[in-house]
Design a binder for these strands. Structure first.
Lengths: 204, 204
DNA sequence: GACAATACCAAGCAAGCGCTTGGTTTGTAA
DNA sequence: TTACAAACCAAGCGCTTGCTTGGTATTGTC
């Protein structure tokens, strides 16, 4: 199943907004602005201007500014969970599955959903507790994919550290790439994935 | 040289504020509040209340709110650069130096300066360009320590990935520990350091 | 075409922000 | 003790923010 097909399926199920529609365009611009200036410094006037409407009109689509932030986060988790599941399902061996997960997460962080993924990391404190709890539920599904694969890699004898700890170290390592990695900087995503795998001493 | 002696020396040279003094107490509380609520959501009224004065009085010590943020960052970099240099100087072999750096950075992130270190990561966008440039100058000194050691470890044959990339992946991995590591969670700082070293395939 | 629903506009509200200003209090040195 | 500097207080300024409200315009459905 291609990435486009996965996205279309999620749109059809109303789990993710169509990027070509009004709501989807707003979320895309919101992710960009929140990423660039921070959620708190991005005003509703900024958001409205980015999609070419007046600020009061935003409140027709979302009840509050915070609901926009939450939607950016929820939708990117849903999309990337599906993409990672698909990447992982395409291979069999535990080490290959781990490599596929690393590659897919690097792509989520440095590709189309990079801005939303950065918002997930950097704007967590601006969410209310209720919203944080809702986002964490989705996040837990995503994290379980990782833990299952890391456990399998450890059981196969390729990893000496604890899967729980490794996952969290990898979360930081991969999330931080958003601050320094440039696809046109001479290192492809596959090359970067190779570096991560090599740093872990898992290279063949 | 002990950590206390290093701190005292920096205070004497006016590179770091005395934590017992008015300015130092304010910076300590600022780091805590900025970490917990975010810089933007922390008002000058919050800061003043945290140290028991009225908000207008803050402007006697600092010209602007942003100058407080900058001082939190600048002072923690200065302190931690000195602490890491000392930790590294206490050992000889490249792998031991790398381990010492990892241990020292984990301590900076999860110990006394943890709040300020988190502010350095999460509040970068709230700094003006001038302030960012000033902070980066100090940051570059700190980063060069790491790159020198990683180059030595690679030259000794223990690392296959590129030092530049590894440093950045480690920055993320170690910085992220601020969100999940708890010293009373059954894993000591030394234990966590061992996990990082093991994840890198550098365990003995 | 008529009507309802959706999307948007324009104006402005109430609350809160970083900071200034004129003053008072405290600490230090001579 | 006196003079001066440093630290703080209290009040309030000008501006900005997220959001509401009454209205208009556009789209969708029958």
């Amino acid at each position: 199943m291609t990435q486009d097909a996965i996205l279309r399926s999620l749109i059809a199920e109303n789990l993710v907004s169509d990027p070509a529609g009004a709501r989807g365009r707003l979320l895309k611009e919101a992710a960009r602005l929140f990423r660039d200036k921070g959620y708190e410094r991005t005003t509703v006037r900024d958001l409205a201007a980015a999609v070419g409407i007046q600020s009061g009109s935003l409140f027709h689509h979302f009840r509050t500014k915070e609901d926009i932030l939450k939607a950016v986060m929820v939708e990117t988790i849903r999309l990337n969970t599906a993409l990672m599941q698909a990447a992982m399902d395409a291979v069999d061996a535990p080490r290959d599955k781990l490599r596929a997960l690393i590659r897919a997460e690097l792509e989520s962080i440095n590709g189309q959903t990079g801005e939303a993924m950065a918002v997930l990391v950097f704007e967590w404190r601006s969410l209310s507790e209720d919203a944080q709890a809702a986002v964490l539920e989705l996040r837990d599904i995503y994290e379980q994919l990782w833990l299952d694969v890391l456990e399998a890699v450890k059981a196969a004898g390729y990893l000496r550290a604890e899967p729980f700890v490794v996952r969290r170290l990898l979360t930081g390592a991969l999330s931080w790439t958003v601050t320094w990695y440039r696809p046109d900087g001479g290192l492809s995503l596959d090359g970067l994935t190779d570096q991560v795998v090599a740093m872990m001493g898992l290279a063949e």
